[in-house]
Design a protein around this nucleic acid. Structure first.
Lengths: 92, 92
DNA sequence: CCTCCAGATAGATATTCATCTATGCATAAT
DNA sequence: ATTATGCATAGATGAATATCTATCTGGAGG
């Protein structure tokens, strides 16, 4: 088990605003402006959070004209959930 | 969804040494000295990590003589896994 | 071209966190 | 009683992080 790699993904997820972002895009891809509407922080802060999520591999970005659309990388999330179950030795 | 509460549990888990500790005690309770043997850090650092895990609610401690035994709080971990699945809108 | 707009980047700041050394406290062994 | 042992606490330090303001970039439309 690669604990360091798993912890990096977890740390990317383990922030309240990013958890809410993930929950938002879990129902389908969203553009940055639409995500930003739901939060009080500034645009650079959103840009930072999206970069953290993308760098971790669990979110991907698609550019269409002026807009950037974000969505979950389902395989990465499945792998993550499997690893978490292995940590706790739960049946998967 | 209480994103702040969930993020606090995740942040407690999302550290490589603590992930390994959780994996160790998932196979049955362990005393601090036994856990410490597996790591390079000092005893106060282990004490810190165990406090973080206990404060998050996913680990509990039992004292027997000079030794402290740590084990997982299974219900808390089940709840945590369920919440993570809800974030990603996976079937649980 | 020029301007506007979506988003990224740069740099600063305050907070959190992982780690250490030193020490305290309770219990076991002598 | 005294000593040794297992673990917690206190305090310090360096690294990481979430946020902001200010600025840059790249594409769309006039």
């Amino acid at each position: 088990m690669n604990y360091l790699a798993l912890s990096k993904v977890m740390k990317a997820i383990a922030e309240p605003n990013r958890l809410q972002i993930l929950n938002m895009i879990s129902s389908g891809e969203k553009c940055a402006c639409e995500i930003l509407d739901h939060f009080d922080f500034t645009q650079p802060t959103l840009s930072h959070h999206m970069k953290v999520l993308i760098d971790s591999g669990i979110v991907t970005a698609r550019k269409e004209g002026k807009w950037h659309y974000y969505s979950l990388v389902v395989e990465k999330i499945d792998t993550f959930q499997d690893l978490m179950s292995q940590i706790f030795k739960l049946e998967s």
